[in-house]
Design a protein around this nucleic acid. Structure first.
Lengths: 311, 311
DNA sequence: AGATGCTTGACAAACCATAGACAGAGGAAT
DNA sequence: ATTCCTCTGTCTATGGTTTGTCAAGCATCT
């Protein structure tokens, strides 16, 4: 997926002039060209976003431009804070293979989880988080990992404790990464939450990751929020869309009640997206309303792009 | 990582003029230079933060500048205890630390949360997370913030949505920070979780933060884990202690059942700590067993130190 | 013709640095 | 109490650099 300069400007919040100047003067990114003009890759956009955030925090673009993506992430994350005797640890880490074997991305993590080795699993996940884009992380790590853990559990090869450990690790990583991409003057803002009695958080967390990674603003409200509150919050944040995670695996009726109320009270100008639906039945119910059913993550991405390019 | 003066000003809250004056007049810090200007190291930033807090407590920068980092820390912890003692004395015989910490640090965050400004709140929290030690963060930010949000909610000045937003922000920050402190050759390992039907995560998350910050290993298993699994996981990870978060605010009976089973099945060699207890009744039940009741975070820290943590 | 994009050059605003000045706070001495 | 005096945050003046934005001129496509 390649983006023309105009789209990148909206996506990153940088002016077209600035984009060109950064390229000309510092070689901050070097997008492809075709006869029509510049074409930025996804990783270009990601890098520009990191640069912009760093600049906002007081760093000079002239100095930043030479840094690698990894260094930029380090600069923005809190590694900056702690690392007393951490250099030694970093020095012992093996150089990361640039092109990891794709199907085996998860294997290291899974092996560590099986061994109950929290530290190792976290290291492995952190490595992936630093290496991959939000999209790749969601599609190639987070989703497969949760699926695989679920399978292994059903097959009796993993305990609930390990399932919990995997979830917590991933939860923490995603939370950390989402924070890395939060920006303050986005083209549009998404409000993410789940209705009353719906406690599955992963869907909206992944959605938040994708949205933030794509340059949209997010307001993340966690799980189990009553309808009035959702509506009120949507108004206060002037959200472009409300994203509800609804698996409906337990207490589906109550959640549906809450959902129905949101449909009634949310102003027409705010879009309402629902994802995570597992039962056909529930999906049918939702489709009767004006709400948009998000089938999967590619579908979510389409709508995100629509919302980002819209304003 | 190095920070230009502008970034340091934002990070520490000191004006650029002040930074230069402190350097010129007192040599408070002596950052590197390159042809573009000053470049502060992370330890410079930390030192400046210490200086700033000391100045806010009434010390003179002229005297502080000569002190070493260690002396500064000593000074701060000393005056902190003195002030607390004085305040407690003045307020009668109220040793309750509930309101002791003034919310100066969290005011910015609170204001942003009230405005539903997710990005700003996150930025502010990130700033605090970057400057404070895990201990300070837990004691001066996380706890006060949750308390304050709770109070404001009871007073009707905050909605549930805002409460959720605050929790999510803090949850993400803590998760991110815990990951930073995870190490692989700890003197002892803690297993943290909550028993069945206990969904309050914050207690064990803060505990994980303190433990990891103190150099202990952690295995974080999240909430709502059955007894067999807790016991099994404790065995597999050869944990030095199992830390259970039990508020017992809902489904207390089921949680107690799970707890009782853990007491029976967990080998004597593994310590069992229980924190977060809100009702006296529950605490009494727990005290009948061999489990250790953790009253508050200072108590937790004592036990962490006993197990090998260093603050 | 009207968009859109590219390059180049120019320029004002913002930044950073140094050195010195100034004013208010507070301590010490009279 | 009053008068110094020191301390300290902020401001000014001056000079060099960096950086965002604009304009002019050209090319391409609809």
């Amino acid at each position: 997926m390649l983006y023309p300069i105009r789209a990148v400007a909206k996506l990153t919040g940088l002016s077209i002039d600035t984009l060109r100047a950064w390229e000309r003067r510092y070689g901050a990114v070097e997008p492809q060209r075709d006869d029509r003009g510049r074409l930025y890759s996804e990783s270009d956009v990601r890098r520009l976003h990191l640069l912009r955030t760093a600049v906002e925090r007081g760093h000079a673009i002239g100095r930043l431009a030479g840094l690698s993506d990894g260094q930029l992430k380090d600069l923005l994350s809190y590694t900056a804070t702690v690392n007393e005797g951490r250099e030694a640890l970093a020095a012992g880490v093996a150089p990361t293979p640039r092109r990891a074997v794709r199907p085996a991305l998860i294997q290291g993590v899974m092996a560590s989880i099986e061994r109950f080795d929290y530290a190792a699993a976290d290291r492995e996940l952190a490595r992936l988080g630093a290496l991959l884009s939000p999209r790749e992380l969601v599609h190639q790590v987070a989703q497969p990992l949760m699926l695989h853990i679920g399978d292994e559990w059903h097959a009796g090869r993993l305990g609930i404790a390990q399932e919990h450990m995997g979830s917590s690790l991933l939860r923490n990583l995603l939370g950390a990464l989402v924070r890395l991409y939060v920006r303050n003057d986005p083209p549009a803002t998404l409000l993410l939450t789940t209705p009353s009695d719906e406690r599955h958080e992963f869907g909206i967390l992944l959605a938040a990751m994708l949205a933030a990674g794509g340059g949209l603003g997010i307001v993340y409200l966690g799980t189990d929020l009553p309808a009035e509150e959702i509506v009120k919050a949507a108004g206060r944040t002037s959200a472009g869309a409300v994203v509800l995670g609804m698996t409906g695996s337990e207490e589906a009726k109550k959640s549906m009640g809450c959902f129905a109320q949101v449909v009634r009270e949310l102003p027409e100008s705010t879009e309402l997206w629902v994802g995570g639906l597992k039962s056909e039945e529930l999906a049918k119910e939702v489709k009767k309303t004006r709400a948009l059913v998000i089938e999967d993550f590619p579908a979510l991405e389409k709508h995100l792009i629509r919302l980002g390019a819209q304003f």
